[in-house]
Design a protein around this nucleic acid. Structure first.
Length: 293
DNA sequence: GCGTCCAGGTCTACC
DNA sequence: GGTAGACCTGGACGC
């Protein structure tokens, strides 16, 4: 029987747990699981001592409550990961200040929107982002589920997201036949191999001193990562200069601002230009305004 | 049942 | 730098 530990963590002034968890599709991808009825987000985290543990996070009113199931737990490491996935240390003051008088996005600060859920590691976010390219959301879920179910370390009745080392240990055919990743298979083999060998360090992108343009160029060196995927990952890293336009975002923009008619990407860029380095978050908030209505 | 299109794009070759 | 065509998969749709 594993031990259960409970932690309480301070909540930022402007913070909405549900809006953060359901800010985009990640909460619906394993190892994340969201119990809507209990408003509890579960995931599998590195314990900090070389093993994995099951975690569940909920809004405890004044605090954020965390339940950890596992025998060996480094509490500081668990707290760090919860802070990371919920972006508890990220300041949105400048963004909210910019929107107070905005005709369209004035609702964002009052509803504490804009925090985008992220995975415990950049590597996991990178792999998941590649799984979103050129396919339906249903296909993304199939690929991520297969990765976790077939390569993830078992943790009780759950599984962790596979490590770069484990992903690097299986051949191309495994990705094609078992993960159903199709042409992306070669990308995963190369990416996992480079990360496992220490040649590529995605976690370092979190604290990179490079400009966003330089960092985007570096991220695009990863095979399978183009403009959309790089800008999407940059948003998860806390850099919102890029719009990360994909077919869904374009379709939403056409519906909301062009009466359903398609328009050029340049028109979309111009529409959000005045938000400067926050434009990627501005378009996301704008396009998802009705998600919580 | 079968063919076609498309979905939270990217890569490569070519101009 | 811009563009065309190929690339895996599976679900939706029309016939």
């Amino acid at each position: 029987m594993s031990k259960v530990q409970r932690l309480k963590m301070a909540k930022p002034a402007k913070f909405d747990f549900i809006r953060t968890v359901q800010s985009h599709g990640w909460f619906d991808l394993l190892p994340f699981e969201f119990d809507e009825e209990r408003a509890k987000l579960s995931f599998v985290a590195g314990s900090g001592v070389g093993t994995f543990v099951k975690c569940s996070v909920a809004d405890g009113g004044e605090t954020i409550t965390v339940e950890v199931v596992g025998d060996e737990v480094n509490r500081a490491e668990i707290e760090r990961q919860v802070r990371h996935i919920l972006r508890l240390d990220e300041s949105f003051e400048l963004f909210y200040g910019m929107l107070e008088a905005d005709k369209v996005l004035h609702w964002v600060p009052s509803r504490s929107s804009g925090r985008l859920l992220r995975s415990p590691t950049v590597f996991e976010d990178l792999v998941k982002t590649i799984c979103t390219t050129n396919c339906s959301w249903a296909m993304t879920k199939i690929m991520v589920t297969n990765l976790v179910e077939k390569l993830g370390e078992p943790v009780g009745n759950r599984r962790a997201f596979p490590t770069p080392e484990v992903m690097a240990s299986v051949p191309l055919e495994f990705y094609k036949d078992e993960i159903r990743a199709g042409y992306r298979s070669a990308y995963f083999v190369e990416l996992a191999g480079r990360v496992a060998a220490g040649e590529l360090l995605p976690e370092g992108w979190l604290t990179s001193v490079l400009t966003t343009a330089e960092l985007k160029k570096e991220i695009k060196q990863v095979k399978g990562v183009g403009d959309y995927a790089a800008e999407n990952l940059l948003k998860l890293l806390g850099r919102y200069d890029g719009l990360a336009l994909d077919s869904w975002l374009r379709a939403q923009f056409y519906k909301k601002h062009c009466a359903g008619a398609a328009c050029d990407d340049k028109k979309i860029a111009k529409h959000y230009h005045h938000f400067g380095e926050w434009k990627g978050l501005a378009i996301w908030c704008d396009m998802t305004e009705d998600w919580f209505e």
